[in-house]
Simulated assay, not measured.
Amino acid sequence: MAISAADVMKLRKATGAGMMDCKNALTEAEGDFTRAVEIIRERGKLVANKRSDREASEGAALAKVSADGKFGAIVVLNCETDFVAKNEGFVTLTQSFLDVAVDNKPADLDALKALTLDGRTLADHVTEQTGVIGEKIDLSYFGCIDAASVVAYIHPGNQLATLVGFNQENVDSQVAKDVAMQVAAMNPVAVDKDFVSQEVIEKELEIAKEKFRQEGKPEAMLDKIAQGSLAKFFKENTLLNQPFVKDNKLSVKEYLESASKGLTATGFIRFALAE
């Protein structure tokens, strides 16, 4: 039977599949639009199964804050190649998943995948797009922050995204952005030293003691000297104690206090696709 261009375009709009894939699906379905959609989706599952063992290390990392400024989310959608990662359609798909996350505030990644977009779960969308694009696609990460105010930052190229929460509402937008960019650039391990895990502390102490041991420092002094190294580690690697990148005479804590009395960061998330 003859398949019209209008039918092909309608199927393409509904599935995102290529023109020839849509025409072939409609031909196989003998013009039955619903069946043609099912064929496209079944092919997506087949491709997804075939490519399940492939590495999907490229992708897009995007961040967004809710309209009231109190909730922010980061979503990461992976693919196999840089070519696909930079494709406008792929970035738009990632953004649509992020919009669902911000609107629904899921508890975790599995809960996000179970949410629906245009009547289908995000997990189903991922499978379908695997078939459409021909690469392994994976919705691999979801992180979120609730705070009095939250700021999001996406580094150009969509490979790095950050969120920072603050203890005050209506934080000056430039101040908030400065701190989000600080997180992106300096990659702190925690907000403050009290939030650094004991595991990390013990590891840093052991590294310091071994370093000074190799330098010939007396064994009895190693613990005390290592504490000094730990203090330096906290200064360089915790957000509030780091030198502010725009003015290293100030710590981030001092910068925030100068912007608004009592202002501080309460938490952050940083996700980088390739580091």
Rank of each mutant, 00 (worst) to 15 (best):
I3C: 11
A6Y: 07
G18P: 03
A29G: 12
E30S: 14
G31P: 06
I40G: 01
R41V: 12
E42G: 10
L46F: 15
L46S: 14
R51H: 02
S52Q: 10
E55D: 14
G59E: 11
G59P: 06
V65S: 05
A73N: 10
N78S: 02
T81N: 06
N87V: 03
T92A: 12
T94P: 05
D99F: 09
V100R: 06
A101C: 12
V102G: 04
A114G: 14
A114Q: 13
T116D: 07
L117Q: 09
L117C: 05
D118M: 02
L122D: 04
A123M: 12
T127R: 07
D138S: 10
D138P: 03
D138I: 09
I145E: 03
D146S: 13
V151L: 00
Q159T: 15
L160V: 15
F166Y: 05
A184N: 05
A185T: 09
V189E: 01
V196L: 09
Q198L: 08
E206M: 01
I207M: 12
I207E: 02
E210A: 00
E210C: 00
P218V: 11
I225E: 00
K235A: 15
K235L: 10
K235R: 11
K235T: 12
L239H: 03
Q242E: 04
K246L: 10
D247A: 13
K249S: 14
E254M: 06
E254S: 14
L256S: 01
L256V: 01
E257H: 14
K261F: 10
G262R: 06
L273W: 02
A274Q: 14
